[in-house]
Amino acid sequence: MKPITLALAGVLGFATPLAWAGNADLDAKFKELVDRSFKTTGIAQKERMIQLDFQKLCSALEAGEKVDPKKIEELRQAQEQTIRWPSDGKFLGNWKEGEKIAQSGRGLTWTDNPDTVNGGGCYNCHQMDQKELSYGNIGPSLSGYGKLRGNSEEVLKYAWRQIWNSKSFNLCSSMPRFGDAGILTEQQIKDVMGYLFDPESPVNKNHK
């Protein structure tokens, strides 16, 4: 698993003075609080606490701070540049492998090690195969994804881009950047796409 490259889509958070409105003193205290409260353990480096520019902006937005919409659009466009299409032009992989990735929430924690195979944890937030009762609702249901949408080039690209970096559509999306942040490999994303689009996949076969 190649080391996690902090996608430097923007200048590292600490550097940009994108402070929250009106309280520089509290900002300084907060930065100091984070610095003395976190540590490196295993593969989880302390540097994970340094925010990327859009992480900082979305944190302020979600906390109810006023944020300039032009800034949001500017950073969203920057995220669009991170999209990498499949190197061989093939979008769909093996849906059986995709199912395992969707079920597994492992990887990238400080109790994992570098050769832990990362999962996608899709079922944490999405319904996919209707027969699987244990699914989350933070994301929309993906049941019957391919069956309902077909697999035109346009639909494949839309789904690939959502998985690669959903922030390219909606800057503050809750969905992780599975491709851009190096969480899943290109092959793993192809397999998840297979799970979504393959007519044999239970995502489509069990869709009522």
Binding site: G105, R106, G107, G121, L133
Partner: peptide, 10 residues
């Protein structure tokens, strides 16, 4: 009795 996987499984 159905047994389900509750948390994030990770």
């Amino acid at each position: 009795v159905k047994v389900t996987l509750g948390g994030c499984g990770g």
